[in-house]
């Protein structure tokens, strides 16, 4: 193997290392402090809800960890490009070889440091996921990380091409295109779809959950500020995906109660024509997900070959069309 030649021309290894380290430390501290105090409070999704605040905090923590890594590599690269270019004066012909033992030490410590950072990030991320009840993400039909309270307001979010509707099971299950949520209340969004996969993204609330047909995807949120938030579809759902957005409002609990009860009465006749409230709805067999059958075949017929007669299928499209 190579003869270990720890030659140290031009001031030696330590000199260059010290320069890099100094630049790195200074830039990292300045950068981190500047980010944390100047940009940090404004990082999306803001602080409209408990979950949004958590996401912002997480982002900022990750940024503060990531920035020194980036600066380290960039400083090193920049230093190398300037200091170790072949065209510099007195470019040393004799190659500087890192002695094998030093190289080994560098490699092991590199592996150790990255491993520690990664395990730390994992622990931090897991804590931040579990502590705020799923951090606003979709948790499937049976969430295991729930808010620590009994009073949770369920709101059903129904994605369909290409709009969102909402049902409020606590108020007779009326369906509307308006999204109103009360402040300081734990809310469970039950996200489902009538056709293809959508994704319910209440941006400022820090909520995101896929809307899957025949699936109930639950996401918890606790709004903490009054105001308007954007709802966008975040999963490509076809032609008008780009236009599938609307707005929701965080209102005071009393205002919400007033709105909900009056809307319930106003829509009472309409609600009767809807299918009974359920966590999921099966679209009609010839619905949006493609007509798989010739029109003369009923996939839910009582034929022993075809489907199961015991299955109660709520035909959403069929009954809604009658109204």
């Amino acid at each position: 193997m190579a003869t270990a030649a720890p030659s140290a021309p031009q001031g030696g290894n330590s000199h260059d290392l010290r320069t890099i380290a100094t630049i790195w430390v200074v830039l990292s501290i300045v950068g981190d402090l500047a980010f944390w105090f100047l940009a940090g409070p404004h990082i999306p999704p803001g602080r409209m809800s408990d979950q949004a605040r958590g996401a912002q905090f997480d982002f900022n923590v990750l940024f503060v960890i990531a920035l020194p890594v980036v600066i380290l590599v960039w400083t090193y690269l920049g230093f190398a490009v300037i200091r170790w270019r072949a065209s510099r004066p007195n470019a040393d012909e004799a190659p500087v070889i890192v002695p094998p033992r030093t190289a080994l030490r560098i490699q092991t410590s590199w592996i150790a440091i990255t491993s520690v950072v990664v395990i730390g990030l994992f622990g931090f991320g897991t804590y931040e996921l579990i502590a705020p009840a799923g951090a606003g993400g979709g948790e499937g039909p049976t969430p295991i990380w729930k808010p620590n309270t009994k009073t949770i307001l369920p709101i059903q979010v129904i994605g369909q091409q290409w709009m969102w509707t909402y049902r409020y099971p606590s108020f007779g299950g009326f369906e509307t295109t308006q999204l109103m949520v009360p402040k300081n209340t734990e809310i469970a969004f039950h996200v489902t779809s009538l056709d293809v996969v959508h994704d319910f993204w209440a941006y400022q609330l820090g909520v995101k959950a896929d809307a899957n047909p025949n699936e109930d995807d639950v996401a918890y949120v606790k709004p903490e500020q009054l105001g308007r938030f954007t709802v966008r579809c975040d999963e490509l759902c076809g032609l008008w995906h780009g236009a599938m957005y609307s707005y929701g409002h965080v209102v005071a609990p009393t205002a919400f109660y007033h709105w909900a009860t009056t809307t319930e009465q106003k829509l009472a006749a309409n609600t009767k024509t809807l299918p009974p409230f359920a966590w999921t709805y099966t679209p009609g067999a010839n619905g949006a997900s493609g007509s798989l059958y010739p029109s003369n075949v009923d996939p839910y017929s009582k034929s022993s070959l075809y489907g199961s007669s015991t299955v109660k299928v709520k035909q959403y499209g069929a009954s809604a069309a009658q109204s």
Partner: peptide
């Protein structure tokens, strides 16, 4: 990518 792998941050940046 590390930001994206962190589930709470992923809630904001997923699909964006």
């Amino acid at each position: 990518g590390v930001f994206l792998s962190d589930v709470p941050v992923n809630v904001t940046v997923h699909g964006s």
